[in-house]
Structure formats: structure tokens, C-alpha cells
Simulated assay, not measured.
Amino acid sequence: MYKVLLIEDDNMVGDMSTMYLSEEGYAVKRAANGKEGMLQLEQFQPDLIILDIVLPDVNGIDLCMELRKVSPVPILAVSMRTDVLDRVDALVAGADDYLCKPFSMRELTARVAALLRRTHMNPQDYAYQSMPLLKLMEDGDPVTLDYERRAIFVNQQFVETTYSEFEIMKLFVVNKEKVFSRDELINALRGIDSFVNDRSIDVHIANLRKKIEHDPKEPKLIKTVWGIGYKYMGGSS
């Protein structure tokens, strides 16, 4: 049974979320503020954290950064704030996904399930035995995608990615050396990432470079095409 830590000060949202997640088979522990959330992180050892960005005692973005420093578990940020900059700030602070209030309980449980599914894939058991089944790129390309399991391998090593990062990478590898404008990447994520914009695309690209590039500051795989957007070079660079 997966354990979910819910850091939420709104009693109505907290009670409803706890009820629905419990009905889906999760063990849920709720904390009403940031201080209690940090304490429960140590005591409860959750598999996933749902973090309200607006809390009574701490700044939720700061708390997200503190949580990320001490724990690798996925963080789903939730907030009444719908401004794109708030969402980008949460992603930069370490959140894996962002959900705007009000949200449906069905969407909440779907987001939780998706984050846990990606996080708890066992790379050691699965990386090498699955390789022959993958759609391999041409020789010399260090990046391989498993479309069925939505997994990315770099030099045959599994790397964790968010849903949006995988979609961008899939677009890149099947259209090698094609230049994608930011608008094209935004359109590709419509319906997956409701609040995507130019800045969040840049955040996704920066995160992908950290995960697949040997030196993210001098990228060889995902190139910036100044004034236009990005292109994927694969093993040709």
C-alpha cells in the first residue's frame, strides 16, 4: 500500500482528498501546516507528497525546496493560484506536477497514480531485459525510449521523467534534428499540461538536459536554436 502525505490546511479539501485517496487504497496522513508536514515526512515516510502551496505558517515554495532537499519522493503541488509564474516556481522548486484548485477528485487520484507509477518502476529488474523490445534509435544515440512503459534510458540506464518531459523527448527523438518552436512544443502538450507556456517549456528543457546531457551547461543532445526553439541532435553531435 502506497503512503501519501497530504499537507493541506483547508479542512474541506483535506477531508475530501483523504477520503477519495483512502477509497483508492492509499494510506493517507494529513498535516495542516508546513511544520507538521516536515515532521510527518520523517515519521510517516510517504511515497508521495501532495503539497498546498498556500499554507498558514510557511511559504509553500520554500517548503517544497526543503522537502526536495531531504526526500526524493514525488511532490504534487496544489494551489488556488493559477498564474503561470506560480506554477513554474513550484516546478523549479522541485515539484513534479501542479494541480490548480478547484480540482476534481478523479483528476487528483489520476495524477497521484501516474506519479507513483513512474517513480516506482524498478530500473534494475527491467532496464536490460526490456531493451530488445524498445524502439532503438540509430547507433551512437545514447537516448532510448520505451513507449509502452513511458520510460527513458540514457546509455541503458533508466532516468525518471515527468509526463511532460517524456512527451517532449518523444517528439524530439522521432523528429531528430527538426527544429521545434516553443509554440509547437506548447501545442504538443495541450491537454496534458493545461498551463504550459514559453517559460515552462524552458524549465522542461532545462530539466531534460540535467537528466540526459553529460554536461547540461554545454548541451550536445538538445540544442538551442536561437530565436526559434530547440532541436534534438542525438548521437550525431
Rank of each mutant, 00 (worst) to 15 (best):
K29N: 12
L48V: 06
K170W: 11
L145T: 06
Y2K: 15
P142F: 03
Q124K: 06
G37D: 09
F44P: 07
M19Y: 09
L99H: 08
A151W: 04
P102V: 06
L99T: 06
V54L: 04
H204D: 09
K35V: 15
K178E: 14
R68E: 11
L91I: 10
L6I: 03
M121T: 15
K231S: 13
D141S: 00
V58N: 01
D139Y: 00
E218T: 14
L85S: 15
I212V: 14
K170T: 07
L41T: 12
I201F: 09
R199N: 11
S200L: 07
K101D: 02
F172L: 02
G60K: 02
K220M: 08
N33E: 15
A93Q: 06
Y230Q: 04
K211V: 05
C100A: 07
Y230L: 05
L108A: 08
E165M: 00
Y2H: 14
L136V: 01
R111S: 04
Y232E: 03
R149Q: 14
L171F: 13
I53R: 02
H214N: 11
D215V: 06
Q156N: 10
W226Q: 07
R150L: 11
G235N: 01
Q43G: 04
S71T: 15
E213L: 05
A32W: 14
H120V: 03
N155H: 05
Q129I: 15
D52W: 01
L108R: 14
L21K: 04
Y163Q: 14
N207W: 15
L171I: 11
D9Y: 03
R190G: 03
G37Y: 06
I192E: 12
G25L: 10
D52M: 00
T224G: 13
V143P: 15
K176H: 08
Y147M: 08
S17W: 07
N122W: 01
V173Y: 09
I168N: 07
M12I: 15
S194W: 09
L85D: 15
G227P: 13
R199S: 12
Q129S: 15
V92R: 10
K170I: 07
Q124E: 14
R190F: 15
L85Q: 15
M105E: 00
V84D: 03
A77P: 07
D10F: 02
E24L: 14
D10R: 12
A93I: 01
K211Y: 06
V179N: 01
Y20H: 04
I50S: 07
D146N: 05
L41H: 05
M12H: 11
N122M: 04
F158E: 13
S79I: 00
V84K: 03
V70G: 08
K176Y: 06
